[in-house]
Nucleic acid binder design. Structure first.
Lengths: 335, 335
DNA sequence: CTGAAAGCGCTTACAG
DNA sequence: CTGAAAGCGCTTACAG
C-alpha cells in the first residue's frame, strides 16, 4: 500500500500514536478492510516474547470438568484472566503421575506466558515440592492454587482450614464422641492435613488418638459410599461424619440410608466446600464453605502481577466458614 | 556445539532419522541436557504454521464451567483433543452478544489451528448462521457442536431430538392432556425447536395448538422455579411437565413442592440430558438422555480430521433415549 | 551426513 | 512522520 510494515505495526499497536500521520492511518484502515487483514498472533508473540495466554496445569489424568471443586476454581481463574484479556490454555496430560504430567507439559511448553498449577489431588507433599521445583527450574512465571503452604518464594493462593475451625472439632464440640472422618486419598496432601487435624482433635477430646474411624473416599461419591458401607458392616460405630468434600457427603448419605440410619437423628454429617448441590440434599448439608472461586481469581491475579511487574512470592490465604444447615444435631454429652 | 541448528531441528523432529549421524545425535543430546534446552513452540509454530492448539468458542459471556451440559461437552472435546496431543484454548469473551463475541475472538485470533464453536445459548438461528459465516470467511478450520442442522458444508456434531421421541409426545402418549413445556429462552435455537415439537404434538393429540402452557426457564433452576410458581398462581393447570434440561426440572420440583404438589402423583416431570444429579433427585427423574460427551468428542474429531486432511463437511447426528425413572406416571385417559 | 540461506510475520531501535 | 534493517527461534528446501 506504499506503507512500510513498521508503520502499520506502530499504528495498530497504538491507534492514537502521533508517529503516524492521519492520512497514512486512513490508507492503512482501508487496506485492512480490503484485505481482511488479521494480525498473526504467533509472529507477534515470537517478536514480543509474550503470547497473552496462561496455561493451566491440573496434574491429574482425568476429566477436567464436572467436579464442583475444579469447576469453581477454573471459573475463578477464567473470570480474572478474561477480564484482563488473557486466554486460558489447557495442556494435554499424558503422565502417569503428577510430577510426570508436569514434566511433560513443561517439555511441550512455551506457548504461554505463565502457568497456574492447581491441586493436591494425587499429589503428596513430595510431589508438590517436586512440581514446584520443576517449575522454578524452568524459569516460567507461575502461581499455585489449592496447595498447602509451601516454603518457596512463589505465588500461592491457599484454601486453608484453620485447625480451630475444623468440622471435626465442631462435631466433638457438639457432643459427639464417635466421629468418622471421610478423607480423600491416603497420600494426598489435603487429605493428610485433614487426618492430622482429626487426630489432634480426637486426642484433645477423647484423650487418645484413634485411627479406626478414618476412611478414604477418593473424593468420589461412589467410593465414599462403599467406604461407609464397609465401615458399617465391619461394625464401626459412629454418630457423626466429617466428609472432606460434599460429594463424599452425598455418598455417605446414601450408605446411611441403605443402612436405615437417618440424618441427623442417628448420624450427623458435615461436608466441605459448600458445593452448589449441598443445600439441595435432603436434609440440606451442613458444610464448611470455602471461597474456591476467589482462590482461583487470586491465582490468576498473582500470576498476572508477576507477568507485569516481575515480582513474585505473593501468598494469600483464604479461610472458610461453617454453614449450618440441617444435617447436624447436638448430642447431650453422656458419661 | 559445532552443529548447525538445521541438524538439531531435523534430529529433534525425528529422533530416528538417518540424516543425522549417531555421533552427532549424541553430542546434541549432551548439549540439550546441559543447556536445559526447550524448544520454543512459538517459533516452531510461526515456521510450520501449526500450533497444535484448538480454540473453543462458547459464544456466551458467563462462567464456562459448572453447568452439567457444558461440562460434559467440554470434557468430551478435551478427552479427544488430549488423546491426540492437542491443547485446548479458551479465548476471552467480551462481546455483548453472540456474533460480537465470535467476531472479537476471531479478531484476536490466530494462535490456534482451528476452532470448535458450541452452543445455541443466547443464539437464535440468525446468530448461528452469522457466526458460521464469520468463521467461513476467516478461512479458519472449525467444527460446530450442539447446533441445529445447518445448511453449510461444515463439520457438525448434532444433538438431535427426533420429533417422535420428544418427551412431550411421551407425556401425551401416557395419557396426560395438560402438558407444560418448560423451555429455555424464547429466541434460542434449541428452545425454538422444543416449542415447535411441542406445538406439533399438542395439535396432534389435542386437536389444537395451545401456547398457554409454554414457559421459559432460561436453563436455570431458579428461573425455572419462579416460572412454574407464576404459572401455578396464575391458575394454569397441568398434570405433566416437560423441561428441556434437568436443571430446570430441578427448579420445577421445588416449585411443585412449595405448592403442595407431589411428583409423580399430582404432576409427572420429564427432564433432558440425564445430568449426573438427575438420578439422585427425589423422586429420580425420568429424562431424555443425550450423548453430550460423545458429541464433544466428535466435534474434536471432525476438526482434527480437517486439520489433517483438509476435508470438511462431516455431519454426525446423535440421538438420545428416554430413561424411565420415577417422576412420571401413566394417566387413564378420561373423556 | 551436515551446513548456509531464506523465510514464517511481526516489533523494535535507528536513521533520515 | 516514515522507511530500511535486524531479530525473535524455529523449519525447509537446497547444496555439497
Amino acid at each position: 500500500v506504499g506503507v512500510s510494515s513498521a508503520t502499520v505495526s506502530i499504528y495498530l499497536n497504538d491507534p492514537d500514536t502521533t508517529r503516524v500521520g492521519e492520512e497514512t492511518k486512513r490508507r492503512i484502515d482501508v487496506a485492512i478492510e480490503e484485505l481482511d487483514y488479521r494480525p498473526n498472533m504467533i509472529a507477534k508473540a515470537l517478536s514480543t516474547q509474550r503470547t497473552g495466554v496462561v496455561g493451566v496445569m491440573i496434574p491429574y489424568d482425568g476429566p477436567l470438568f464436572g467436579s464442583s471443586f475444579l469447576d469453581s476454581m477454573l471459573s475463578g481463574i477464567q473470570s480474572e484472566l478474561f477480564a484482563r484479556g488473557y486466554s486460558m490454555l489447557f495442556l494435554p496430560t499424558k503422565g502417569e503421575n503428577s510430577p510426570a504430567v508436569v514434566r511433560n507439559q513443561l517439555k511441550v511448553a512455551h506457548g504461554y506466558d505463565g502457568v497456574i498449577i492447581s491441586g493436591t489431588r494425587y499429589c503428596d507433599l513430595d510431589d508438590l515440592n517436586h512440581n514446584v521445583e520443576q517449575l522454578l527450574e524452568s524459569g516460567l512465571p507461575f502461581s499455585t492454587v489449592n496447595m498447602p503452604v509451601l516454603d518457596y518464594e512463589i505465588n500461592q493462593a491457599i484454601l486453608r482450614v484453620p485447625l480451630e475451625e475444623s468440622p471435626t472439632k465442631y462435631l466433638y464440640e457438639s457432643g459427639h464422641r464417635e466421629v468418622l472422618l471421610l478423607s480423600g486419598r491416603e497420600k494426598d496432601a489435603d487429605s493428610v492435613t485433614s487426618v492430622q487435624q482429626y487426630r489432634h482433635h480426637t486426642l484433645n477430646y477423647l484423650g487418645a488418638v484413634d485411627d479406626s474411624r478414618i476412611l478414604y473416599g477418593d473424593f468420589e461419591d461412589t467410593v465414599a459410599r462403599s467406604a461407609v458401607q464397609s465401615a458399617i458392616s465391619a461394625g464401626v460405630t459412629f454418630s457423626a461424619i466429617h466428609a472432606i468434600s460434599d460429594t463424599m457427603a452425598l455418598g455417605a448419605y446414601e450408605a446411611l440410608a441403605e443402612a436405615g440410619l437417618r440424618v441427623p437423628e442417628d448420624v450427623s454429617v458435615v461436608g466441605m466446600n459448600d458445593s452448589y448441590f449441598s443445600r439441595r440434599m435432603s436434609p440440606p448439608l451442613t458444610t464448611y464453605r470455602r471461597p474456591i472461586f476467589r482462590a482461583g481469581q487470586e491465582a490468576a491475579r498473582g500470576l498476572l502481577r508477576t507477568l507485569e511487574t516481575g515480582r513474585t512470592g505473593r501468598k494469600v490465604q483464604f479461610d472458610g466458614e461453617l454453614v449450618f444447615r440441617s444435617s447436624t444435631r447436638t448430642v447431650p454429652v453422656s458419661a
